[in-house]
């Protein structure tokens, strides 16, 4: 009867769980339930793809380089070790 509202609730729930779902952080049964919903609900599927693509992008963020003289600078600035005994 109240199908629409029920669906809306389910979507809200699924969207909340999406981030965890992507990490496989659910038991099989729960995971299958979420997957089934994503398969048939376009809105949630879009969110799912968007989140996945964000996570993929994060992994390709370019790294900054280490300055060539970095190690030498650190080594030069190391304080003399205090004697072990006081």
């Amino acid at each position: 009867m109240d199908n629409l509202r029920e669906d809306a609730m389910r979507c809200k729930k699924v969207l909340e769980l999406l981030s965890r779902f992507i990490e496989n952080d659910f038991a099989d049964e729960e995971s299958a339930e979420i997957k089934a919903h994503i398969d048939k609900c376009e809105g949630c599927r879009k969110e799912y793809e968007a989140m996945k693509s964000l996570l993929d992008r994060l992994e390709t963020i370019p790294l900054v380089c280490v300055p060539l003289s970095f190690k030498d600078a650190v080594m030069k600035h190391l304080p003399e070790k205090k004697d072990e005994d006081k």
């Binding site: 280490v66 970095f70 190690k71 650190v74 080594m75 190391l78 070790k81």
Partner: peptide, 12 residues
Amino acid sequence: KEAFALLVERYQ
């Protein structure tokens, strides 16, 4: 002390 350079290299 010089051994510290290895850690710097590894993690910088």
